[in-house]
């Protein structure tokens, strides 16, 4: 079994924390993993993307081929659409619905929504609002991860929770609990 995942967003939105949690979960589950990240220039408010590949078998390429991604997990709706050519025919898009507008020519939101809604498998939500309502404003990326949990399949929600506990342990119990709450809320959203 394999899962090819594209993580996307805008520099500074925290896609690498999602990658770190999934990576930790994959390590706990004894899976093979490769994760190509973007560092450097593109972190200054530009688009950022990471290819994350999980498999029960050894993985060769660090990058995902076109038409092969099982999942696009995005912190931003236009950034989710940027990687459509990589999505598999039965792939799912899990995204925040809220645009991050830091460019003058950002497209019409209605046009983005029409495009997203035309896709076969889409889960979207205003994750910033969900996290804020939970009193966990800084954990919106874990809401997103929760929304993606049932599509991840190769790692279980329990393993992802365990990974969240490991990753955030050094920041104290309250941070761990906010992130778990955010993750659980995300799971409910995709039910």
């Amino acid at each position: 079994m394999k899962k090819d995942i594209i993580l996307s967003g805008v520099g500074g939105q925290g896609i690498l924390s999602i990658a770190t949690v999934i990576g930790e979960a994959a390590t706990i589950a004894g899976l093979h993993l490769k994760q190509a990240e973007v560092h450097g220039m593109s972190q200054r408010g530009g688009d950022v993307q990471s290819d994350l590949r999980l498999s029960t078998e050894p993985i060769a390429s660090d990058l995902i081929a076109r038409g092969q991604a099982d999942l696009i997990i995005s912190m931003e709706p236009m950034e989710a659409l940027r990687y459509l050519p990589f999505l598999a025919a039965d792939g799912a898009v899990i995204t925040s619905s809220k645009p991050f507008i830091n460019i003058p020519n950002y497209p019409e939101e209605a046009a983005l929504q029409a495009e997203l809604k035309a896709l076969p498998k889409v889960v979207q939500s205003d994750i910033d609002q969900v996290a804020a309502d939970l009193g966990a404003a800084r954990s919106s990326n874990m809401v997103l991860l929760g929304m993606a949990a049932k599509f991840l399949e190769i790692v279980s929600p329990d393993t992802l929770r365990e990974a969240i506990r490991h990753i955030f342990a050094s920041k104290g119990d309250s941070v761990v609990e906010s992130n778990i709450r955010a993750f659980n809320a995300g799971i409910e959203l995709s039910e």
Binding site: M78, L81, L84, A89
Partner: peptide, 16 residues
């Protein structure tokens, strides 16, 4: 290999 979905027509560049 090949894409299953066309590139979005709405997406624009987001330079750093």
């Amino acid at each position: 290999t090949g894409a299953c979905f066309d590139a979005s027509k709405n997406v624009v560049g987001r330079p750093p």
